[in-house]
Design a protein around this nucleic acid. Structure first.
Length: 103
DNA sequence: CTAGTGACTGTTT
DNA sequence: AAAACAGCCACTA
């Protein structure tokens, strides 16, 4: 596994329960400003549970919506977030003003 | 080495 | 407010 991924995962592990962060925000905190896609790519490599324990479901895009390609995974992520108290509006979006991880 | 692609984002239509 | 565009970068063919 590359170092960049490790650094990114380390940042994501700091996201407190009940809060969500955007890809770009993770990238910035990890020291890679403007490289949101890199975060997405790193997380994509996790989907086989073969990686370190990372709360990947607390990562959303800048609009506050789930960005996963597979509908099945989207439902899973949504359920996990709702279990932590996150609320989705009728359009399936989270209010980042309320649940965004402010750092 | 070149080209296409993707768990993105800020700006401009 | 939603959609289109153009940067961004690692990875694959």
């Amino acid at each position: 596994m590359s170092d960049t991924h490790s650094i990114i995962f380390r940042v994501i592990r700091r996201i407190p329960r009940g809060k969500v962060a955007a890809y770009g925000q993770i990238a910035r905190l990890a020291g890679f400003p403007g490289q949101a896609r890199l975060v997405g790519y790193a997380l994509h490599a996790l989907r086989d549970g073969s990686g370190p324990r990372v709360p990947w479901w607390r990562v959303l895009n800048a609009r506050g919506e789930i960005s996963l390609p597979a509908p099945a995974d989207q439902d899973l992520q949504r359920s996990l977030l709702e279990d932590e108290g996150i609320v989705f509006d009728l359009r399936g979006r989270v209010d980042l003003k309320r649940f965004g991880w402010k750092k």
